[in-house]
Design a binder for these strands. Structure first.
Lengths: 111, 111
DNA sequence: GTTTTATGACGCAAACATACGACATTTATT
DNA sequence: AATAAATGTCGTATGTTTGCGTCATAAAAC
């Protein structure tokens, strides 16, 4: 989760990069996408939705959880996962404002 | 740039993940940020802005170029890099629409 | 209380990414 | 032509991520 020379950059960029890294795997995007599509929070049949081994999916879930983007509620032997809207919102805003900054750059790129 | 079992996911998710991966390193964010802040496209004094070796920065620039987010124009011994607004715009839109989808999910997460 | 079910934790191999020095190339300057 | 400047390319060491099997655990069903 941390790179060797990371601490050389501003916390802001580091955090955004860390967020981006969580999104940088199709399985994790697929999990988020799936959770967003469910009315009710469904437990580990996420596992059957994602074409990877149960262990691997569980690992991706863990990463999403560590990033604060989802949370799980234990109920018996099952765990109900769902999106953590507060964090999702934060990520959305930060990512978008970074992209806006790029998009509104002058780019007077003629020489 | 490609993961082992990537091809198991939809192209849409794969592409978004690939974009996210490019953003998943503070050095690359810092480069984009720096380019956005310049009125004129400045060449490899990006290198002196980023606290990593010239070679490493060059490598990150290469990745941004491969992703289509920047391009470089050769002029003598120098190269002028700048943001590729079209691609930036595409990324912005796609990322945002994904995040919107997540953010507008019901998340009826009580059991 | 034993078995089944659902799940996490651990460990490991293979694939990838990062960082950098040394060398190559190409244009500018002298 | 010889040298200097600005870059890219290659090779390589080290670190990180991915994917998975095996084992551990804990609640449910029998």
């Amino acid at each position: 989760m941390t790179y060797a020379k990371n601490d050389v950059f501003t916390p802001d960029l580091q955090e955004l990069a860390a967020f981006a890294k969580v999104l940088a795997h199709p399985a994790r995007l697929a999990i988020l996408d799936y959770l967003a599509g469910q009315e009710q929070c469904i437990s580990g049949d996420i596992t059957s939705e994602i074409p990877l081994s149960r262990t691997t999916v569980s690992q991706h879930l863990q990463e999403l959880k560590n990033a604060g983007l989802i949370h799980g509620t234990v109920s018996g032997t099952r765990i109900y996962y769902c999106l953590e809207q507060e964090k999702i919102g934060e990520l959305k805003v930060r990512m978008h404002s970074f992209m806006e900054k790029l998009a509104s750059a002058k780019t007077e790129c003629s020489i």
